[in-house]
Design a binder for these strands. Sequence first.
DNA 1: GTCCCCGTGGGAACCGGTTGGTGGGGGTGG
DNA 2: CCACCCCCACCAACCGGTTCCCACGGGGAC
Lengths: 356, 356
Amino acid sequence: MGVGLTRKSGAGGRSTVRDVAARAGVSASTVSRVLGGEYPVSAATRTRVLRAVRELDYVADARARAVAGAGTPTLAFVLEDITGPSFAHMAYGVEREAARLGHLSLVCSTDGDVRRELEFIEMMRAQRAAAVILVGGAADTPEYRERTRRVADSLAAAGSRLVLCGRPPLGPGAPVTVIEYDNEGGAYALVAHVLAQGHRRVLFLGGKPDHTTAMGRQRGYLAAHRARGVEPDPALLLHGDFTRDSGHRLMRQALARGLEFSAVIAATDMVAAGALTALHEAGLAVPGDVSLAGYDDIPFARDLRPALTTVHVPYEELGRLAVRTALGHGGESADEHLLLGTHVVVRDSVAAYGGH
Amino acid sequence: MGVGLTRKSGAGGRSTVRDVAARAGVSASTVSRVLGGEYPVSAATRTRVLRAVRELDYVADARARAVAGAGTPTLAFVLEDITGPSFAHMAYGVEREAARLGHLSLVCSTDGDVRRELEFIEMMRAQRAAAVILVGGAADTPEYRERTRRVADSLAAAGSRLVLCGRPPLGPGAPVTVIEYDNEGGAYALVAHVLAQGHRRVLFLGGKPDHTTAMGRQRGYLAAHRARGVEPDPALLLHGDFTRDSGHRLMRQALARGLEFSAVIAATDMVAAGALTALHEAGLAVPGDVSLAGYDDIPFARDLRPALTTVHVPYEELGRLAVRTALGHGGESADEHLLLGTHVVVRDSVAAYGGH
DNA sequence: GTCCCCGTGGGAACCGGTTGGTGGGGGTGG
DNA sequence: CCACCCCCACCAACCGGTTCCCACGGGGAC
């Protein structure tokens, strides 16, 4: 028999353009024009349509609009952990800037799980996202490069764009925008500052051994030592993750093992916070007995006692920038590679070496 | 090797079902069935289709699928400020649980701007989101109730659902799910604890005067006083917002004005952190000279010196719960109203009144 | 008075997928 | 050897909007 012509009339359910059209006594195209385009419509018709829209509480289906070519573009933001303050600030920047440019933004926390990351990117490709922003370090293995490269190509082929934020670049030729904040440079400056205070044995509470953010900071640590002619003791390089608990645990272990050091560089302010508590629990004064510094300059850094000397990273601006460059040249502009500067913020947690 | 392809497909353009179909020598419907349904397809055909899919790097357009009735459901999460640690933890819970249930989640920071909030909700209605979760306090005015009520009805009529998390309920009959964490109860317990230590003049660093979260906590503060037979001095109720800077500023002003108090309750751990710094800058010892307590139990609370006594709120679980109840009964189940318990976490920032 | 043009609104194709109904072809049982 | 049945792929309708193209009608100009 005939296909079901039954159609829900406006009351209660979601209503369609045709419902509105029927109620206003015009055609669907007219409704669409009143709502959407710059097409000329007489005042009387417009009023009737708008009234029908109001009465039915109609909102055009965004997905359908998208399929038809109109519709709000979307942008995806993938990070490891939205709970981390620095990432959260970036997320804020991304979300604000995306909104400003008329884009919707999707957020995904991957927990560092590569599978989830890939799945999400695939979803975003299906959503025809205008850009996918990946943020946070990763293991820079050949496998990583190949995988990410493939993703980048897929996105590029679909007219989208991959943005790597604080992630290892993929080598030349990959259709990617890379934005890095200077992990090595910041750490270098910070450690140089500590060494200049006379410290010679500086403990480094790092991140995962293959994580590029952590490694960048570690490279800065090493470079600063070498520049000063100090041979860093490999035993002073500890690995954890970027959480507060990790900092707490690592510092406890270091103390228990009887490691000797007069200063501590934490890969993150969060790690520094945990470490500070561990030091305090051990009865050590900061910076009297041990100096301590962090990285990221999260707002809380000022409220630790002593206030934390750290490296400032403009996270919110970073997020905004990522969106802007990603969307600015949606097409095929030169593949950019930006490096954002950082600077040391000196507070009270680093003191001159007392030689105790 | 150059892949000879028409402009419609292959590298450079998104490919469609029909492209894949053509390449595999089958019809579009067959492709769709291979990819999507449980429809029986012969092994040979399936292989051919899958190969074509791989070669073209095809991904079905999610929007089109959604329009056609298949597709991943979506869920929206609206908060004031993703930068706040407690909100971030909720966001994490929401995102995780949504993903677990096969939903995509959109996040929006409104900065407390009502206009942006409404705009975003409207967008979500257009996206046919399965649910919209609103989190964070708001001014509980008649206007607020009416406006939100209208939004709730709209969503309900569209088969969606509004969830209010830590927001003023709308009164009976509104199609809303309300989940609250017990602000008043938590504050009551916390202040009771402080009063039990002998303090009688307790400064309250609150939030915006009409903000329900802040008000709930303030009510708890007042109730605890009355229960103990202490008449609270209205001069000790200060108003700011929930940021660290607000805490810092408020505390400085209080000290400058020469207010007398022996303990401070901050409406938020963030506020407490700022206040702590201000106290320290004024040369006051915590808890020696002044006792201090916060609210939220963010991870950092342990790392303040002294470690902050505060009220624990299960934010991540709250987010998960919001998603679960919102999605559990997508339809028209009883409008729930849940109240999550909180409990005081005693650390080192509150001491017995010394009568100084 | 007639012609032309412009302002408006309608019909239909299309966006990219999904799915119900249908029909052809091959395997198997009688 | 034929008929029956089932398997599998195709056609076409549909989801909800948008937009190209065309028809119609009225008013101004000559």
